[in-house]
Amino acid sequence: MNVQYWIFDTTDVAQMAFNLTKGLRTRNPANNRVIFDSRYKYMRIQGMVKANIGTSPASFPVAQGTGYGIGVSNSGAGVLVTGGPVGGGPYWLNNDLAYVAGFKTLNGSVQLRMIQLALRITDGPSNPPPTGQFGSFQAVGLVLDLRNY
């Protein structure tokens, strides 16, 4: 599998790595922090994908056909706990499933699908632990223009 990635960082971190004298820098007058530096490429956001992750993949079209990627800003991590009493009790069985969103770019669209990270099966006597959905199953990704980097 061939995966390309880009890392965007704040300009103060970038300045620590590169002490150059050329280029335009704009500073915040309140704290003298660099808020724009022409020496570094900036993140070009073209849009946003925001959706609830489900068991089947969802596809979202993007305006440009090539040269785009996804910057994940919320992976939609969550845990789904299902189960309850077995055979009328007093024993119980629970399935704890941990999920996160996975983004993929393909043929002019962004695909979003649920990725199962872990499965834990627990059982025991007496009262079962609570069941339900814990965390957010909503994922947010930024559609980025990655051409000419």
Rank of each mutant, 00 (worst) to 15 (best):
R120H: 11
A51M: 01
V81S: 07
F8R: 06
A101F: 11
P57W: 06
A51N: 06
L112I: 07
N19Y: 03
G132P: 03
A101Q: 04
Y40I: 07
G87M: 05
Y68R: 08
F137K: 10
L142D: 04
G76E: 05
N107C: 01
V3H: 01
P85M: 10
I7K: 06
S56N: 09
F8S: 04
N107F: 07
L146Q: 04
L93D: 07
T66H: 09
G84Y: 11
S109Y: 01
R113S: 15
P129N: 09
N74A: 14
M1P: 02
N31C: 10
A139Q: 03
V49H: 08
I53N: 00
Q133Y: 12
Q4A: 12
G141H: 06
D9S: 14
V100E: 14
V13Y: 13
F18D: 13
T55I: 12
A58V: 05
D12G: 09
G102I: 00
N32Y: 07
V79H: 01
S59V: 09
S75E: 10
P90N: 14
G132C: 03
V143Y: 08
S136G: 09
A101G: 15
R33H: 10
N52I: 05
N52A: 13
K104E: 10
G67K: 04
D37V: 10
P29I: 09
R147V: 08
Q4I: 09
R25T: 13
R25S: 10
T105R: 01
I35M: 10
V86W: 03
S56V: 13
D145N: 15
G87Y: 00
V13K: 15
G67Y: 03
N148H: 13
V110S: 02
K50E: 13
T122M: 03
K104R: 12
F8Y: 15
G132Y: 08
N148T: 14
G71Q: 02
Q4W: 02
L146P: 00
N28Q: 12
L117A: 06
N2G: 13
L80P: 01
V3N: 01
N32P: 01
A14Y: 03
L112V: 05
R120L: 12
N28R: 11
G84L: 08
P29F: 06
S56A: 14
Q138C: 04
N32V: 00
S73F: 03
L146I: 12
S56I: 06
L112W: 07
I45K: 11
P61L: 09
A51K: 06
T55N: 14
V13F: 09
R39Q: 14
V143M: 04
V140K: 09
